[in-house]
Amino acid sequence: MVQAIAFYAFAFVTIAAGVMVVSSRNPVHSVLYLILAFFNAAGLFVLIGAEFIAMILVVVYVGAVAVLFLFVVMMLDINFVELRQGFMQYLPIGALLGLILLVELFFVIGIWSFLEDGSMLTAVIPVQNITNTHALGNVLYTKYVYLFQAAGLILLIAMIGAIVLTLRSRPGARKQKIADQLSRRSEDILDVVKVKEGEGV
């Protein structure tokens, strides 16, 4: 009962937030609604017992992707009003695509429920009474340690590549040099001058 209420609440908020993403006028609001949608989707994952995916969704999508979106929206000068102008024009083709997806979804579910041994095709749930995170950790650092480490190397290369190809040293740029600031003494830069009245410096 509680689960059902939670499911409908999460599902409803997800869909509502999704609608708001495309319909709100202010792009920053869109991104914020997107974050809301991600959080609620994560809640749905928790409900079906996939707590690891839920956490990943929050960490990766909310933490990285949405913040990146926010940066793009705020830093780049994109005229969103202009982008939105063709909305009505593209509505029919969008609706058609949505309809096709809906029909396909019905096909999948229909075949699934009419299939005699359809239940065989669901993923095997491991017998051990351990959490997803625990189960993943068990194989990730043992059986797949080679692939895990190698994937880490690939990410390292990606980072090196991004830095090598984009970072430029600009000679004119002013940077804060804390050591210089700290080693500066008042005697070197301050002159105490006695000014006679009426004469100025």
Partner: peptide
Amino acid sequence: MMVSAGDLIALYIGLELQSLSLYVLAAIRR
């Protein structure tokens, strides 16, 4: 790692590690 791959995932990961480094090297004179 590619040459030593005994598994499809290991093959792909070795290949990507190699390719990604080479893409950057090809564009190094940016």
